[in-house]
């Protein structure tokens, strides 16, 4: 009998330790490569700012994250969304994170998901809405958000509203269309069955179908997280006083402060991945009936 391949081949099944070794090859090469380029660069230009060493980045990052005291005020957007006034917090990084992540990103994401879910569900269930709304949602989903940004800034000013609306506009049509598709995928037999069990129009939509598409909503959010971040950073880059995106562009103007930019980029990536991972966990934990372990 032939020995099972460890390294190559379609049927290769490397043991766990080898899998970990394989996984770490790319980052090790990347880090080592950067270290080599950066140290060569710094040897030639001892005061160069373009390729900071890891130690320089760490030192800069510690400065950015250190607290000098926590104090903040609450302001309200549209009367119901609390806005912590972060300038009073000592740490630039955590202030930026709080305002970008919890205020702008999560608010935008929540509103876009809620609207997209309800809209997509109803479009799929009620035929009138398919003619009334669906074509225009499809057309609007093709409008590049960046092109609309100047209009938003003119209409809504440079406050929080414009940036939240930007995220909502970037996501809501995609989520609507996705929820429409997912609702349409539910077997007709199941809907007819619910009818024979006495479901009314609204009962069918909100008691039968809605709970069945919630996991799909989480999945759509997860997969379109990139767009949300894109809209967030774009909005912050153009007009903001705080935020992760704002800070990166500020560092570029005053320096360029690469030792500050790189940790920010790494952290943004980590946050994005953490949210992606968390949504995946929630999906598996809350909806055990959905996971594809065994087929029905």
């Amino acid at each position: 009998m032939r020995k099972r391949a460890l390294l190559l081949g379609i049927h290769a099944e490397p043991p766990r330790w080898l899998q970990i070794v394989y996984m770490s090859i790319v980052p090790v090469i990347a880090i080592a490569g950067y270290y080599w380029i950066s140290s060569n660069y710094l040897a030639d230009n001892p005061h160069g700012k373009l390729l900071p060493s890891f130690m320089m980045m760490l030192r800069r990052f510690l400065v950015l994250t250190s607290f000098s005291g926590i104090d903040f005020e609450l302001n309200w957007v549209w009367g119901f969304i609390p806005v912590p006034d972060i300038t009073l917090i000592g740490s630039l990084f955590w202030g930026d994170t709080a305002i970008s992540l919890f205020l702008r990103l999560l608010t935008g994401l929540t509103i876009a998901s809620a609207v997209g879910l309800i809209l997509g569900l109803n479009i799929a269930m009620f035929r009138t809405l398919q003619f009334l709304v669906l074509p225009w949602v499809t057309v609007l989903s093709f409008v590049p958000v960046v092109a609309v940004m100047p209009i938003l800034l003119i209409v809504l000013g440079i406050g929080e509203e414009a940036k939240i609306v930007l995220i909502i506009l970037g996501l809501v049509f995609i989520i609507t269309l996705s929820m429409y598709e997912k609702t349409r995928e539910i077997a007709q037999e199941l809907l007819v069955n619910a009818r024979t069990l006495g479901a009314t129009d609204l009962g069918l939509t909100y008691r039968v179908v809605l709970p069945m598409v919630i996991p799909d909503l989480l999945q759509t959010m997860r997969l379109n997280m990139g767009i949300a971040w894109y809209c967030l950073l774009m909005g912050e880059a153009i007009a903001a006083q705080q935020g992760l995106g704002y800070r990166i562009f500020l560092f570029r103007r005053v320096g360029p402060d690469m030792a500050g930019i790189l940790p920010y980029v790494i952290c943004i990536t980590l946050f994005a991945f953490a949210i992606y991972y968390l949504l995946g966990c929630i999906e598996r934990r809350l909806f055990p009936w959905k996971t594809d372990g065994e087929k029905q």
């Binding site: 007819v192 039968v208 909806f287 029905q296």
Partner: peptide, 19 residues
């Protein structure tokens, strides 16, 4: 239209997968 006077059992898709 379909109503509770007539029940149906299909080959599959008869049950609500989330319940």
């Amino acid at each position: 239209f379909p109503d509770p006077t007539r029940g149906i059992v299909y080959q599959k898709y008869g049950l609500f997968p989330n319940r």
